[in-house]
Simulated assay, not measured.
Amino acid sequence: MTGAYPEPPPYGAPQPQGQQPPPPPVSPYGPPVDSGYPPPGQQMPPQAQYGPPPGQYGPPQYGPPPGSYPPPPYVAGAPAQKGNRGVVIALSVVGVLGLLCVAGVVAAFYFVGKEREGGPSQASGEISGVIDYRLTHPDWLEREHLADGEKPEYRMVPAAGGRHFGNWQRCLGDVYSAPVVEGRAVHSLEHGAVWITYQPSLAKSDVDKLAGKVRNNDFMLMSPYDGQPSPISLQAWGYQLPLDKADDPRVDQFIKKYRETASLEPGTPCSNGLAD
């Protein structure tokens, strides 16, 4: 009906004072949908910012972590750091081994020199009192064979090497009660025998002791010898040991060391020699 109700002012127009604006028209399709835009005259609220939280991500930072100490500067001659300990230990071990090798070489030369001088040498197991003609007079130890009837001359008494006859004295543990031909006994020494000689005036008890060390032992022979300077004398090729008593422990030491080992013809037997 015209004039029953006044015509409402347009939406958004200023309203007369003392009057409330009429409610917005109701849509038959339901309440209005929020478009996300602010009403006229208001600003858009701030939007969410995408990206890493402040202080968590960013380009990698190189160098020591904040607050740590910088590495010490290199100084020539400074002690090795902990990481070089293995190298230092290895170099120390090599140095010690080198010193030990040098000491061993020096000791070897020392003992060899003492042995050539005729002094004691524990390294070679030298027996006290042994005369080593191989070192002192190798020219006395000629190996030439003599014809029967020739008379060999020796510079040591009894002979411990030198020119000799082609036949040797049997040395299968033989104990001769009379002197033997010296040139034959020297040939036995060349085969590796030990020849024990004694003055004819030696006490029978000492003779028996020596005989007990000779009998039934290959590469051994024993006989009296007129004119030798010591009561007892032991000979191997190039070696000699003068003694006074048969119970001297060096008798066994000499036999053990030089019997067969002093041979210049290893493997040559003492059998088939002359026994007269």
Results as ranks from 00 to 15, higher is better:
234 L>K: 06
70 P>T: 10
274 L>H: 10
184 R>F: 06
29 Y>H: 07
170 R>K: 09
142 E>D: 13
17 Q>I: 09
29 Y>S: 08
27 S>W: 07
222 M>A: 00
129 G>C: 02
113 G>H: 14
59 P>A: 15
157 V>A: 11
240 Q>Y: 01
167 N>A: 12
79 P>E: 06
210 L>R: 03
59 P>I: 13
169 Q>D: 00
22 P>H: 15
37 Y>L: 09
89 I>C: 01
79 P>D: 07
158 P>V: 03
207 V>Y: 01
166 G>I: 12
54 P>V: 14
233 S>L: 01
189 L>Q: 07
104 G>Q: 14
59 P>K: 15
134 R>T: 10
38 P>G: 06
245 K>I: 04
73 P>W: 04
6 P>W: 05
198 Y>M: 12
76 A>H: 10
211 A>G: 02
192 G>D: 00
126 E>P: 00
207 V>S: 00
151 K>V: 05
42 Q>N: 04
24 P>I: 11
198 Y>C: 05
101 C>P: 00
53 P>S: 10
197 T>N: 09
60 P>D: 13
244 D>E: 09
212 G>N: 08
19 Q>E: 12
192 G>H: 02
60 P>Y: 13
255 I>L: 06
122 Q>R: 15
203 A>G: 10
37 Y>I: 08
66 P>A: 14
195 W>L: 01
32 P>D: 12
162 G>F: 00
118 G>Q: 11
63 G>Y: 12
165 F>K: 03
62 Y>K: 05
243 L>T: 04
124 S>H: 09
31 P>M: 08
91 L>W: 08
148 D>Y: 07
65 P>H: 06
238 G>T: 02
168 W>K: 10
26 V>G: 05
55 G>I: 06
233 S>G: 02
96 V>N: 02
95 G>H: 04
14 P>T: 14
42 Q>R: 13
113 G>T: 15
164 H>N: 12
188 S>Q: 01
88 V>E: 12
263 S>T: 13
37 Y>S: 09
89 I>N: 03
110 Y>L: 11
22 P>Y: 14
141 L>D: 03
260 E>H: 01
96 V>R: 04
91 L>D: 08
163 R>Q: 01
71 P>V: 13
151 K>F: 00
211 A>K: 07
177 S>V: 12
97 L>W: 06
261 T>Y: 04
84 N>V: 13
225 Y>H: 11
205 S>F: 08
226 D>T: 12
197 T>L: 10
112 V>D: 14
173 G>L: 03
234 L>Y: 04
273 G>N: 03
126 E>M: 09
243 L>S: 04
143 R>D: 05
173 G>C: 01
205 S>M: 10
121 S>I: 11
124 S>I: 08
264 L>W: 08
224 P>N: 02
133 Y>W: 07
45 P>M: 09
260 E>N: 01
128 S>Q: 06
56 Q>N: 12
76 A>K: 13
154 Y>D: 02
134 R>C: 04
109 F>N: 04
228 Q>S: 13
231 P>N: 13
162 G>L: 02
37 Y>R: 12
169 Q>C: 03
57 Y>P: 00
85 R>L: 06
247 D>Q: 05
71 P>M: 08
105 V>R: 11
153 E>H: 07
246 A>Y: 07
70 P>R: 15
20 Q>P: 04
112 V>S: 10
